[in-house]
Write a protein that binds this DNA or RNA. Structure first.
Lengths: 146, 146
DNA sequence: CCTTAACCTACCAATATTGTAGTTTATTAT
DNA sequence: ATAATAAACTACAATATTGGTAGGTTAAGG
């Protein structure tokens, strides 16, 4: 149940871009240095993010990346869905990579896994890059105390 | 962010045991057949569950397993924590396998990961084997609709 | 003492993870 | 033009995890 470095680095890269927003294009080199992440590895993460239209890029001198959308319009759920493939805890409730299961009708646990997915999606889709910049957690997670 | 077969099989094994509770000891062979899971693989999952006192076992003729506690006292969180090691999405917020991170003080995302863990823990700790038998989802997950 | 079934140990193939390394292409300043 | 810069692309690889299989050992009951 771990989130891979790919997802975590992607999130940190985007938060970094959000922070230095308005300073033109930011080179990967600078993000890599600030975030202490291998630049070469970040290079591999960028094309994954580019499946969606999150980034604007410019090559060459003073090139780099910047956010194509404002930070309050990019959710953690969106970022992780791009990098992790899906946030579904099981393949049998995955929209993209759905794998047929012969026991589906019988399965007494399917129900609760769907519930888990719903809870995870709900939380992550409620947090934006802007929220992270402002260092605030989703209200609903704070309210949820037994 | 996938739950491994180990965790899923463990849960299904325990739900199966809960269902056939009161019929004495249930042989792994029977669980394996009903659940269509390799018996040999289940054999490896049992000792993991036995880190906690969930099961009673008996060897030899008419031996097998049964629940040591009633189904409403065993939560999904407990089962998955045993098999998956921890439900924490990152090592830096793991109680057992905590890994030191030099960026901890700086980390602007730590916050939201902690929130995620809280949401996952909260959901899974609220569901018991009995709930699964009765095919009902936690009320809070049903309430959570936008 | 024979059958049953849990228990234990070793091994293994496939895949995912977490990178490194080197080359190529596009952009801009001089 | 051309040199510098930085993204983009491709290939490789060590390591860990996953998802098992195989075989032998121990305990309990009839």
């Amino acid at each position: 149940m771990r989130v891979s470095t790919k997802g975590r680095y992607a999130l940190r890269m985007l938060v970094d871009l959000a922070e230095y927003q308005g300073e033109g294009y930011i080179a990967l080199k600078d993000i890599a240095k600030r975030q202490e992440i291998s630049k070469k590895y970040l290079e591999q993460i960028v094309p994954v993010l580019n499946k969606s239209r999150i980034l604007q890029t410019n090559r060459g001198f003073q090139g780099g990346y910047r956010l194509a959308v404002s930070p309050e319009k990019i959710t953690m759920g969106e970022v992780l869905r791009l990098t992790e493939g899906s946030l579904s805890p099981l393949a049998c409730i995955d929209d993209d990579k759905y794998i047929e299961c012969s026991r589906r009708e019988d399965c007494s646990t399917l129900y609760v896994w769907q519930g888990l997915k719903k809870v995870i999606d709900g939380y992550l889709d409620g947090i934006t890059l802007q929220d992270i910049l402002e260092h605030k957690r989703e209200s609903y997670s704070n309210d949820y105390v037994i």
